[in-house]
Every structure is written in structure tokens, then in C-alpha cells.
């Protein structure tokens, strides 16, 4: 079971993982990214490259399933305006035992950060907004899976 979803409405970890939870493996691992209140941020706005995004995320899941023995994997990403406290991304992987699911989850979110065509803009309480700069630490984390 492999699933990629781009959502312009709120998402929950539980709903995105429900299929994986019932797949019959002994391990389900996940990562949920949540909008942080970073120095007065009230919301973030996410833009993406429709078409390329879905293909890119599907390729990441294919790469993960080629590398680890997985029963399934999901990636769900929000687009549009996401307020502080709401999930932005849910990544999940299911396997027979924990090691595969844990490593595949880390791989998927690390690679998503550097490879998938999404862009974030922070909105502040005073009405201003600023594009988020890419972080070198994200490149470093992604490269360790090379």
C-alpha cells in the first residue's frame, strides 16, 4: 500500500495512518510536522508544483520500498494556509519489525525536505509575510541517505 496525498484542507495523523495501521505488520512508524510558533508566526502558507510534487513523492516511496522491506508507506502534505499547531506533513511506514519502518520514515521526511517542490512562507501577527530560506542542516540530513 503506497499513497501520496496533497491536501488543501486540515489533516490529522490518525486519519492519514489508518490504512497502514490495519495492514497487519508489527510496526508502524510515523513523523508529523507541525507549524511552530517561531517568533510571532501565526501561520505558514505552502505553495507547490502540481504534478511534479505527486511524482516526486511517489518516487521517494518507491525508493524507500526498494531499500527497506515495507508493507506500506504514506506521505500526506498540506498546501495553502496552515495555522500554528496544525500538521503540515504526515509520513508513515509499516513493516513486520520496527527497524525498517523507523529508518524508512526518517528517509522519507529527510528526502522530502530537500527534493519535493514545496515552498513555505511565514505569516506574522502584524500582517507581514516572509519566504522561508532552505537550511543547510536539511541538506546534510538528506545526504546521509545517499
Amino acid at each position: 500500500m503506497k499513497k501520496v496525498r496533497i491536501s488543501n484542507t486540515p489533516i490529522t495523523t490518525e486519519a492519514e495512518l489508518s490504512t497502514l495501521a490495519g495492514i497487519g505488520g508489527g510496526a508502524l512508524s510515523s513523523f508529523t510536522g507541525i507549524v511552530r510558533d517561531d517568533g510571532g508566526v501565526t501561520a505558514i502558507e505552502l505553495e507547490h508544483y502540481p504534478g511534479m510534487t505527486e511524482v516526486c513523492l511517489s518516487q521517494l516511496i518507491e525508493a524507500a520500498t526498494a531499500r527497506w522491506s515495507l508493507l506500506g508507506a504514506v506521505v500526506t502534505h498540506r498546501v495553502g494556509i496552515v495555522p500554528v499547531g496544525d500538521p503540515v506533513v504526515v509520513v508513515g511506514a509499516a513493516s513486520l519489525h520496527r527497524a525498517e519502518a523507523l529508518e524508512a520514515t526518517a528517509f522519507l521526511i529527510d528526502r522530502l525536505k530537500t527534493d519535493a517542490p514545496f515552498w513555505k512562507r511565514e505569516h506574522y501577527a502584524d500582517g507581514t509575510a516572509k519566504w522561508v530560506e532552505a537550511k543547510l542542516s536539511d541538506d546534510t540530513r538528506s545526504e546521509r541517505w545517499a
Binding site: V55, V89, L112, A134
Partner: peptide
């Protein structure tokens, strides 16, 4: 054509070129 490439890549028969800042999803 929706594949990430570097600035030295050949344009070739490409139909669509996207230009953007480094990605910041997740």
C-alpha cells in the same frame, strides 16, 4: 519537464522549464 536539473543541463527538446528558489517543504 518536472525533473530537477542543474544550470549546466542542456535544454534539448524540453517543453517546460520551472525556475524557483531552494525547496522548503516538510
Amino acid at each position: 519537464d518536472q525533473n530537477m536539473v542543474t544550470a549546466d543541463a542542456l535544454l534539448g527538446d524540453g517543453k517546460e522549464l520551472a525556475i524557483f528558489p531552494p525547496v522548503t517543504g516538510g
